[in-house]
């Protein structure tokens, strides 16, 4: 179970109140993969932070299965600079699992992101994309019930991005965690989401079910068509509803 109920979130920015999330009600059924798209500043990250328990809603509620293990991949790698790649991946597991189990999971996760050879590398020695892959491995090694990803692939080159999108689908199909993926890349949303939520000015303004089998190809006409429709809505005419102001 993962859901937000009429959740709003206000921030004070320079004495001004900003409504980052405006009464969102949304269920994320167990074992599904949901993509959230929208422009920068439309509340995507805020919604993800509520789901992760890193922020509390100003009003409304967030419900999460109490014992659920949560893995988060942030927009930035957020690696501990004093730990090498393997120790960073092991970081959330330490003290919870036996040494052998941790080692096995670290090896597996680093191999999944293609960094089996970088075990001993310190974050300062990794490129931005490599660091982000270590961060993805760190979340995967937890084998979480809920996997929350905030633009996880945007720092990666196009080829690596495509590879890791496939890895995500494989992991999801193998273990069926509940996945919520925030992205500004509509194509990525259509390739990975069973459904795509459109967020605008802190509200969910659309929900598209993507009824295509995995793995999906960007060149598939059905993918292209869905992508075109979602893009047209997000960048199209401003909505007549005055509360749906375009984001700035």
């Amino acid at each position: 179970m993962l859901e937000v109920i009429d959740a709003s979130r206000r921030y004070e920015v320079a004495g001004r109140t900003v409504l980052a999330l405006d009464g969102v009600t949304q269920r994320f059924p167990v074992g599904t993969i949901t993509a959230i798209v929208g422009r920068s500043g439309c509340g995507k990250t805020t919604l993800l932070r509520l789901l992760a328990g890193l922020a509390e809603p100003s009003s409304g509620a967030v419900r999460r299965a109490p014992a659920a293990g949560i893995g988060v991949v942030f927009q930035e790698a957020r690696l501990m600079p004093w730990l090498d790649a393997a120790a960073n991946v092991a970081f959330p597991l330490k003290g919870r699992l036996g040494r052998a189990e941790i080692d096995a999971r670290v090896d597996e996760a680093l191999a999944l992101v293609g960094l089996a050879d970088a075990r001993r590398a310190l974050p300062a020695q990794l490129s931005g994309g490599m660091a982000q892959r270590v961060a993805i491995a760190r979340a995967l090694a937890q084998r979480p019930d809920v996997l929350l990803l905030d633009e996880p692939f945007s720092a990666l080159d196009a080829f690596t991005r495509r590879t890791l999108q496939r890895v995500l689908v494989d992991v999801w199909q193998a273990r069926r965690p509940t996945v919520v993926l925030v992205t500004h890349d509509v194509e990525e949303a259509v390739l990975l989401g069973e459904s795509v939520l459109e967020l605008e000015a802190g509200r969910v303004v659309g929900r598209v079910a993507v009824d295509l089998p995995f793995p999906r190809e960007a060149t598939d006409p059905a993918v292209v068509e869905l992508r075109r429709r979602i893009l047209a809505r997000l960048v199209g005419e401003p909505h007549s509803d005055p509360r749906r102001k375009p984001c700035t």
């Binding site: 992760a52 328990g53 890193l54 293990g69 949560i70 893995g71 988060v72 942030f74 930035e76 957020r78 501990m80 600079p81 004093w82 970081f91 959330p92 330490k94 003290g95 937890q142």
Partner: peptide, 26 residues
């Protein structure tokens, strides 16, 4: 942002101190 990594991983206050804060301050 590093402390948030610890919070998401479910670390206790004490673990956040010893495993994130103190090494960062080194």
């Amino acid at each position: 942002r590093l402390i948030e990594v610890g919070r998401v991983a479910g670390l206790s206050r004490r673990d956040i101190l010893t495993r994130i804060v103190l090494p960062s301050a080194l």
